[in-house]
């Protein structure tokens, strides 16, 4: 198969499958769900997804485990005191950056 055709066909399949997964539940389920269990399940879904995506991946998000752990601790503390999404994310980056500077300076 021609390279360019393969590239575009692959991207089309990627985009098509991803969009269908997103649009079908949103477009088809027009009624409110009655089951208490399903509603509770769906309520907990985002927290489960984000926790599973964050841990343990966060610890390999920078050049070293130590700097990533430093950034993680900064993010946990700021989140605990509810300082908002943006400040928490930027502070975590700063934490990683400073930890790596310190690591370099100490050898």
């Amino acid at each position: 198969m021609n390279n360019v055709v393969y590239l575009f066909a692959s991207i089309a399949v990627m985009a098509g499958v991803t969009y269908l997964i997103r649009v079908l539940p949103l477009a088809v389920f027009r009624r409110k769900i009655q089951s208490k269990f399903v509603l509770d399940f769906l309520y907990y879904v985002p927290y489960a997804v984000l926790a599973a995506m964050t841990i343990p991946a966060v610890f390999s998000s920078s050049n070293s485990l130590i700097s990533a752990a430093a950034g993680f601790i900064v993010a946990v503390v700021l989140s605990f005191f509810e300082r908002g999404l943006l400040l928490t994310a930027v502070s975590a980056c700063a934490g990683v950056f400073l930890a790596e500077l310190l690591l370099k300076a100490s050898g």
Binding site: T88, V90, A92
Partner: peptide
């Protein structure tokens, strides 16, 4: 390297 943690910081918040 430092930017890599931004998305996870947001998740935690």
């Amino acid at each position: 390297s430092a930017l890599g943690i931004a998305i996870y910081g947001m998740f935690l918040a």
